[in-house]
Computed example of a mutant assay.
Amino acid sequence: MRTDDKLPQVKGRPTDLARPRMTRTRRWLLGSTLAVYAATVIGVLTTSWLVRLDWQVMLFRPYKHWPEIHTFLDYFVVMGQRGPTAVAVTAWIGWCCYKQRTLRPLIVLGTSLLLLNITVGSVKLGLGRLGPHYATSVGSNEMWGNGDIFPSGHTANAVVTWGVLAYLATTPHARRIASVIAAIFAFGVGMTTVYLGTHWVSDVVLGWAAGVLVLLALPWLEPAMARAEVLLRAMYRKVLEYRDRASAPRPLSRPVAGSTLATPRTAAHDDELPARETVGVGGRPSGVAAHTSEARPHHPLRPHPIRAERAGAPGGSRRPPHADRVPRATAPLGPAAGRGRAASTGG
């Protein structure tokens, strides 16, 4: 039965990796990003120069000036879509979990996506801004409608999904490379949505800020994620114990005291029981006694009768005896019998 909570170790793969902490630099970045987030929301609500910039870019219609890259950007924007990116990153993080023998990468990814959906989704539904394709009046901020584009979900998802790879990097060199890749994807996806006309510029700016806030807040959630990992390991051990217990062979049940099977039989007890012999078809023992060599009756060997000795066929003949005829073996041999035989042979 396996009760250990540690998976087999791999050489060269540490299991207790250093987890990011909320350092002074992170706090400074967190405060700066919060300021950008608040300034963007206030600028859109007050219909400031940021809203005028949104309308200028929207009326410029970039997709009409550079149509040759439209097809490529239609596919590239998928890098910020929640479903495909989550599947791709989950596959890589699952491999990291297997190599490092820990569930922390998957827990970090799940926690970041959950936090992103809660924060971005609540702001989207609360402000209800309409997109460029559904704008009603030129120069307005298009707030408090039935829209859900502020902030940009594609942009924020690209920041968080690809940024988690940099957050989980085990070496400074790998962290720098992953950070550059995440920045390229996040910037490219945000500007692609502006090119396609699906988002305002302010939507993209707020999406960048929302994704960075989620990544910067992850170190504060490290203790909770560590407890979640311990809980998942405990559940995994219980599942293994239950499976091993279910697959183990069950011992034979012992007879209850006082029952017939529990009472030992003695010779005196057997003498009190009436002698019975169970006979089946053809005189053979049946039931339980038929399968035991001790209960099988032993008959003495007897010779088989020859043909002349069988009853009902005197002299070895198979004809039934006739009432008017005399058996040949008992017929008297006299002169009359001799004459009769001679007459029959001569005729």
Score class of each variant (00 low, 15 high):
Thr3Tyr: 14
Thr3Ala: 15
Asp5Gly: 15
Leu17Pro: 08
Arg21Asn: 06
Arg26Met: 12
Trp28Val: 13
Leu29Lys: 03
Leu29Val: 03
Leu30Phe: 12
Leu34Val: 08
Tyr37Ala: 07
Thr40Lys: 03
Leu45Asn: 04
Trp49Pro: 05
Leu50Ala: 13
Leu50Ile: 15
Met58Tyr: 12
Arg61Ile: 10
Pro62Cys: 00
Pro62Asp: 01
Tyr63Met: 09
Tyr63His: 11
Lys64Trp: 05
His65Arg: 04
Glu68His: 10
Ile69Ser: 05
His70Ala: 02
Phe72Ile: 11
Phe72Leu: 13
Tyr75Ala: 10
Val77Asn: 01
Met79Trp: 06
Gly83Met: 12
Ala86Asn: 10
Val87Gln: 03
Thr90Tyr: 02
Ile93Thr: 07
Cys96Ser: 06
Gln100Pro: 04
Thr102Asp: 07
Pro105Gly: 11
Leu109Ile: 07
Gly110Lys: 08
Thr119Gly: 09
Gly121Asp: 10
Val123Leu: 15
Val123Glu: 12
Gly128His: 04
Gly131Ser: 15
Ser137Gln: 15
Gly139Arg: 12
Ser140Cys: 10
Met143Tyr: 02
Asn146Arg: 14
Asp148Lys: 06
Ile149Thr: 15
His154Cys: 08
Thr155Gly: 07
Asn157Ala: 10
Ala166Leu: 04
Leu168Pro: 05
Leu168Trp: 01
Thr170Ser: 14
Arg175His: 11
Arg175Leu: 08
Arg176His: 11
Arg176Cys: 06
Val180Gln: 03
Ile184Tyr: 00
Phe187Cys: 07
Gly188Met: 12
Val189Met: 00
Gly190Gln: 03
Thr193Val: 05
Val194Tyr: 04
Gly197Ala: 04
Thr198Cys: 00
His199Gln: 00
Val201Asn: 01
Val204Asp: 01
Val205Asp: 01
Val214Ser: 05
Pro219Leu: 11
Leu221Val: 09
Met225Tyr: 03
Arg227Ser: 11
Leu232Ser: 11
Leu232Ile: 15
Arg233Gly: 09
Arg233Trp: 13
Lys238Pro: 01
Leu240His: 04
Glu241His: 13
Tyr242Val: 13
Pro249Glu: 14
Arg250Thr: 15
Ser253Asn: 05
Ala257Trp: 09
Thr260Glu: 12
Ala262Ile: 10
Thr263Val: 06
Pro264Trp: 10
Arg265Gly: 06
Ala267Asn: 07
His269Met: 14
Asp271Phe: 15
Pro274Gln: 12
Arg276Pro: 12
Val281Ser: 11
Gly283Ala: 05
Pro285Tyr: 11
Val288His: 10
Ser293Phe: 00
Ser293Tyr: 02
His298Arg: 13
Pro303His: 07
Ile306Met: 12
Ala313Thr: 15
Ala313Leu: 13
Arg319Leu: 05
His322Asn: 06
Arg328Ile: 07
Leu333Ala: 10
Gly334Phe: 01
Pro335Asn: 04
Ala337Glu: 10
Arg341Gly: 01
Ser344Met: 01
Thr345Val: 06
